[in-house]
Design a protein around this nucleic acid. Structure first.
Lengths: 120, 120
DNA sequence: CCAACATGTGAGTAGATGATCACATCATAG
DNA sequence: CTATGATGTGATCATCTACTCACATGTTGG
């Protein structure tokens, strides 16, 4: 069990470190909105970072398990991986255990808003 | 609206940056578990970081709005602030909109587990 | 096979960051 | 008031990190 915790801890490190960079969060936003997309397309949305930089970011996101890569010919298509979010939510749930209701309220609101947008 | 978004963005930057450091997350864990506690008590739980270092970490957590400070005599008591977690959950909900159900499931499970532990 | 394309990678660099030490501040007990 | 305790802060330093550039790798069309 202790080992599991320690492994989980290291995974947390990678995930939070990956999320700490604004450009990486922007990449996640982009992929989340457009769905699966190739590295080059992602890079073309960034004026201040070269393709190389984006490639490095994608590597970090991939190693953290936040995105997954699929090769199609000369393209590498990136998409959002959903499971790691559980780790983040789990962490928050543990720290904010005394105000979990606020978290669930936020989640429910977000879910409702999403459902609303979907039906619109 | 754009201004609001930009402000929110900057707040996100601070929050995610604050959460990116393992020691700061450990501090949050500690405060979350013990409830309100003074700076020195927090520092005494860390072998590899001096009191000064912990103090600097607390400053970052405070500026990010993740903890709040209350002065009582010569002590400064720190406690968890709950609202900023909403920002994190909101961000995750936006990126993982296509698998929100997984997030809510994780939240519900966490809530249930907590309620279970509470009644035990 | 070869040229053009899509992308990852290694070297190198400027800037951010986490840590310490020494010191400043402020509260309190005597 | 003065010594002690609790804590924050400025200077400094080593390390990490997010870039860029040049190059390597693998793919496809002709």
């Amino acid at each position: 069990m202790l080992v599991e915790v320690s492994v989980q801890q290291r995974n947390d490190d990678e995930i939070f470190a990956a999320l700490s960079d604004p450009n990486r969060r922007a990449i996640l936003d982009l992929i989340g909105e457009h769905g699966e997309m190739p590295s080059g397309d992602i890079a073309s949305h960034f004026e201040d970072v070269t393709r190389s930089g984006i490639s490095a970011h994608l590597r970090i996101l991939r190693l953290a398990g936040l995105v997954s890569e699929r090769r199609d010919g000369r393209y590498r298509l990136y998409s959002i991986t959903s499971s790691p979010a559980d780790a983040v939510v789990g962490y928050l749930a543990s720290v904010y255990r005394n105000s979990l209701h606020q978290l669930t309220a936020a989640m429910e609101e977000a879910t409702a808003r999403e459902a609303d947008e979907r039906s619109a």
